[in-house]
Simulated scan of single mutants.
Amino acid sequence: MDYPHQPEHVTLVITHRLLAGKQPEYEQWLEKVMPQAALFDGHLGVNILRPVHGEQTYTVLIRFDTLDNLYRWINSTQRHALIAELPAMLCGPEHIELRPGAAFWFTPPTPERKAPKKWKQFLITLAVIYPSTNLVPWFWGTVLPAAKGTLWGHFLNDASVVALVVFMWMPVVTRLLANWLAPRGKQNLESNDE
């Protein structure tokens, strides 16, 4: 059964805090779980946000095209078998969230840290989208002049911008600016701007 008004994709955001010394074992576990998820209908990709600054927290982002397809993966026997291996590696239960659309880029690295202010999300998104939407058409216009003003040229530009943002710019920028987006010391005590 399909749900009406679904977002263009949904993301399962999973946060795992590892026990000391379990990182190599957990990395091997990731190598098993990622190909398994990719076998399911509607799978759009996996991003792994690995710990920085000596932390032991991993954030795994698994994207699906619809809620139905994501639930099929969540409730699958394959996933349950893999999840059964986790308790020996974690120092607490896994934290799971469902995020519609592209909101997952601004998921804090740990459940204790709050999501960034809306104005920070706006600035980061603008900083990534603006140069991409200007440079990509220039690039394809130079390489494929026949594409200018055509429907397939617009598709090529849009597909390139989305690929750059999703697979390159957002993961890099949000990781580099993680402490500015969600400061560790202040814990974002002020309420988020809507």
Rank of each mutant, 00 (worst) to 15 (best):
V52P: 01
F104E: 11
I83K: 11
E8Q: 01
N47M: 09
E190K: 15
E25L: 10
T142V: 01
A115E: 10
G101H: 07
P87M: 06
P145R: 04
K117Y: 07
Q6Y: 08
N192W: 14
V46C: 14
A178D: 12
R17V: 12
G141N: 06
R63I: 02
D68I: 09
L189G: 15
V143E: 06
Y58Q: 09
E25T: 02
V13S: 04
E31P: 00
H53K: 08
N75E: 14
L67V: 11
G153I: 05
F104I: 03
I74K: 10
H53L: 09
K118R: 12
Q56P: 10
I83R: 13
P108L: 02
F155E: 15
I96Y: 03
T133L: 10
M34H: 11
K120C: 13
G92K: 12
P137Y: 05
A147L: 15
T125Y: 05
G101P: 06
N179F: 07
W29E: 00
T110K: 10
R50D: 07
L177E: 02
V10R: 01
H80T: 14
N179Y: 09
W119D: 08
A37Y: 01
Q28H: 04
H80K: 13
G92F: 14
P51H: 13
V165H: 05
L135G: 12
I96N: 11
L176C: 13
L123V: 11
Y130N: 11
L135S: 08
L30Q: 06
V13G: 00
T125D: 03
N188V: 02
L151R: 13
N47C: 06
W119E: 08
A88G: 11
L151H: 14
P111M: 05
L61V: 07
H43V: 02
A127E: 10
T57D: 08
T110H: 04
A146I: 05
R63M: 08
L123I: 13
E190P: 01
V33R: 09
A159V: 04
A159G: 08
L164C: 09
D2H: 06
R17G: 15
L177G: 05
L181W: 01
D41S: 13
A38S: 15
N179R: 12
G42S: 07
L156A: 10
Y3W: 10
A102H: 13
T15F: 00
V165C: 11
T11Y: 04
D158R: 12
L164R: 04
T142L: 05
T110W: 02
A178E: 08
H5F: 08
M170P: 01
E97D: 09
Q6C: 03
T133W: 06
V165F: 02
D2W: 07
R63F: 00
R113V: 02
S191C: 04
F167L: 13
E55V: 04
A178S: 13
P108M: 05
G92A: 10
W152M: 15
A115K: 13
W29T: 00
P145L: 06
W138N: 03
T15N: 07
Q187E: 09
L12I: 00
L61I: 12
D2L: 14
T174F: 01
N47P: 00
F64Q: 00
A38K: 15
G42R: 02
A38C: 10
L67D: 11
A182T: 14
